[in-house]
Design a protein around this nucleic acid. Structure first.
Length: 646
RNA sequence: GCUGAAGUAGCUCAGCGGUAGAGCAGCGGUUUCGUAAACCGCAGGUCGUGGGUUCAAAUCCCACCUUCAGCUCCA
């Protein structure tokens, strides 16, 4: 028997018989490891522990703690769920059933039957029974024709459709108990590893993600090796709901969404407006320092603007119906750029004037499908912290870097660390979706990539995510429920300057075309606020907090001193309130604590006598007496420095 | 837009064929109090909208609207 060399993650190597399995290797290391092992990574590919390794390889035994281990675990869980479903609903047809970030799903065609909560419970119970049997997951390879014959007999058109794309290849199947599925794998050793099971939800999902196809029923599930981990996961889900910006927005009176105004048309309440305007003020000041020129433009514009820009033909479906006025048609503006281009085009420009950076918090209107609306995160009316920068080709990269720097400043000021940077390029296979010449695209994608490298962005490239007029750098963040959203964006545009015939006169006396950078650090004030509320769980840093401090007199006797403290803070620009209600101090504290107010200044006899305030900090409690002037100075400093901590 | 679930007082929710309920919030009074809920009282609802079944509908049926989850879409 030949020997092969196995290299472990720590660099150590060891010889094994050719055909050794991952499980045997794990067993040779320790019993504990073999018991915990779920799959094995062989030269970067995740495989079943039971598959033979036939040549020299680098391997890593995957446990629950490894992403690859979870992947296999949830993949196998999807099979377990399918197995349980097939026993309860004979004749069910299966779409796809992959693992996802936390858990797995399977798409099912149950014919006329619609799954209800009781069905999920039954499936879940059956999954537990099947898991208890501890059936091994067994891989089997078949010729393509045999695979087709199998599913023809079973009458599963979905699997047959999938097989069409694998024509001529050897097809792998996995068996567990009585259940058999077409599957690449890999899988964990046996169903018994799946200990804690919870089916979360059922929802519709189009077959192959195409809305023209039949809608299947998708069951989402979670499984874990221990009940404790499942409980923790479910607890985290509940916690996330507490952070939900829609809930906090209502509780903290930040904004209002009412069908009386319309879906996706948020109303900003006084407290929410303070937060929003604080963000705007911050960015306006940074932009002023960087040579941006503020402009203001109307909310509608002649439709010809958008025909020129190309928005109208490309995005007709996501715009509100045009308004007819005196034989002209107007559009609620879906973007600010055409307006800004008119400002640029209104007078001739010299190469010396460039770059010109026009900026506006411009509100735009987009028709989003009703099912897409989501709190502040997906709306029909939103304000873009927009800027259009008209630059010479030789200035482009430098400007891109400056913009990235500004976005990084915005994100770091707010403590956003968990974001991803995406370079959104066009899909060369789908050119009709985009405007402009190939050469422009190649140039701008190169510029974007070089700027991203220069600024040391940790990015990934997404093909097909570009705007129709150019590639983008998008800054992606997650909401409380783990969904990813695009916030800030930087876009390079060679297309629209051409469409609008924008020019400047160069040093050579000739006309030249500027390049436009579209950029928005927040992206949309609405979406950003939504994410921000969840990011801080409603506990804003002091500079953003709608109420920064509240003065709480113990009794009426202390009201006069309380007023004095209140007025001193107010005069210094602190957003302070005075709670002169006839209530016990405990009641007031509870009340303001639930409103997540940072500082409560309790004043009674002692404070009045000493010229102090008894500071109570949100979630932390009594900090004791502090001289009122000293505390005011501290508060002002915390605000001024935009500190993330109190 | 599609599939499913849900809409009862400002908020959280109970009631699920027999004249609309609670707690909190609000208002009036009593209480003047030291770090997360004092006490008494008052007021508040075309039970999402419209239609139907029934002697009788918040409750059963149908349609629509809105919200939520997922899908699709997202300049």
């Amino acid at each position: 028997m030949n020997k092969i060399k196995i290299t472990f993650p720590d660099g150590n190597t060891k010889e094994f018989e050719q055909g050794v399995t991952g499980l045997q290797i794990a067993e040779s290391i320790s019993k504990g490891l073999a018991k915990e092992a779920l799959a094995v990574e062989v030269n970067g590919e995740i495989r079943d522990l039971s598959r033979a390794i036939t040549s020299d390889s680098s391997i890593k035994i995957l446990k629950w703690a490894d992403d690859g281990g979870k992947y296999a675990y949830w993949h196998s869980s999807a099979h377990l769920m399918a197995a349980a479903t097939e026993e309860l609903f004979p004749g069910v047809k299966f779409g796809i059933g992959p693992p996802v970030e936390t858990g797995y799903y399977y798409d099912l065609d149950l014919g006329e039957h619609t799954l209800v909560a009781e069905d999920l419970q039954k499936i879940e119970d059956r999954m537990r029974e099947l898991a208890a049997k501890d059936d091994p997951y067994i891989r089997e390879e078949k010729p393509w024709e045999d695979a087709v014959a199998y599913f023809k007999k079973k009458g599963d058109q979905y699997k047959l459709e999938l097989l069409e794309e694998l024509k001529g290849q050897t097809i792998s199947f996995y068996h567990s108990g009585k259940f058999t599925d077409l599957c690449y794998g890999p899988h964990i050793p046996s169903t018994g590893r799946i200990k804690a099971i919870k089916l979360l939800s059922v929802a519709g999902a189009y077959w192959r993600g195409n809305e023209k196809n039949k809608m299947l029923q998708r069951i989402y599930g979670a499984t874990f090796p221990t009940q404790k981990e499942l409980d923790e996961y479910l607890f985290r889900l509940e916690e996330a709901k507490r952070r939900d910006h829609r809930k906090l927005g209502q509780e903290l009176e930040l904004f209002l969404l009412t069908p009386k105004v319309g879906g996706g048309l948020p109303l900003w309440l006084p407290k929410g407006t303070i937060v929003r305007e604080s963000l705007e003020g911050f960015l306006k000041e940074e932009q002023r320092k960087r040579g941006y020129k503020p402009v203001v433009t109307p909310h509608i514009g002649n439709i010809n603007l958008y025909k020129t820009s190309g928005h109208y033909p490309y995005y007709k479906d996501s715009q509100f119906t045009p308004l007819k006025v005196e034989n002209e048609e107007y559009l609620l503006k879906p973007m600010n750029c055409p307006h800004h281009f008119q400002i640029y085009a209104a007078k001739p420009h010299s190469y010396r004037d460039l770059p010109i950076r026009l900026s506006e918090f411009g509100t735009v209107y987009r028709y989003e499908q009703s099912g897409e609306l989501n709190g502040l995160i997906r709306v029909r009316s939103f304000t873009v912290d927009d800027s259009h920068m008209f630059v010479r080709q030789d200035q482009l990269k430098g400007e891109l870097c400056d913009v990235i720097d500004l976005i990084q400043l915005v994100f770091s000021t707010l403590g956003f660390k968990d974001f991803k940077t995406r370079l959104s390029f066009r899909d060369p296979k789908n050119k009709e979706k985009y405007g402009g010449e190939d050469q422009m695209w190649e140039m701008s994608e190169k510029d974007i990539k070089e700027a991203a490298d220069l600024m040391k962005l940790n990015y990934y490239i997404a093909i097909g995510e570009a705007a129709f007029y150019g590639p983008k750098i998008d800054f992606m963040v997650r909401d409380a429920l783990g969904r990813t959203w695009q916030l800030g964006t930087v876009q390079v545009d060679y297309v629209m300057p051409q469409r609008f015939d924008l020019e400047y006169t160069g040093a050579d006396g000739q006309k030249h075309r500027p390049v436009v950078i579209h950029r928005a650090p927040f992206g949309s004030m609405e979406r950003f606020m939504g994410v921000l509320i969840e990011h801080f769980a409603g506990e804003f840093p002091l500079w953003l907090a709608p109420i920064q401090a509240v003065v709480l007199p113990i009794t009426d006797v202390h009201l006069e001193y309380a007023k004095q403290v209140f007025k001193e803070f107010e005069a210094s620009g602190v957003r302070v309130e005075l709670d002169d209600r006839n209530e016990k101090i405990g009641y007031k504290i509870r009340d303001w604590e639930t409103k997540k107010v940072a500082y409560m200044l309790v004043v009674g006899d002692k404070e009045k006598e000493n010229g102090t305030v008894a500071v109570r900090q949100h979630k932390k409690g009594d900090l004791g007496q502090i001289k009122k002037e000293a505390f005011l100075a501290q508060v002002l400093n915390t605000i001024k420095t935009k500190s993330l901590t109190l």
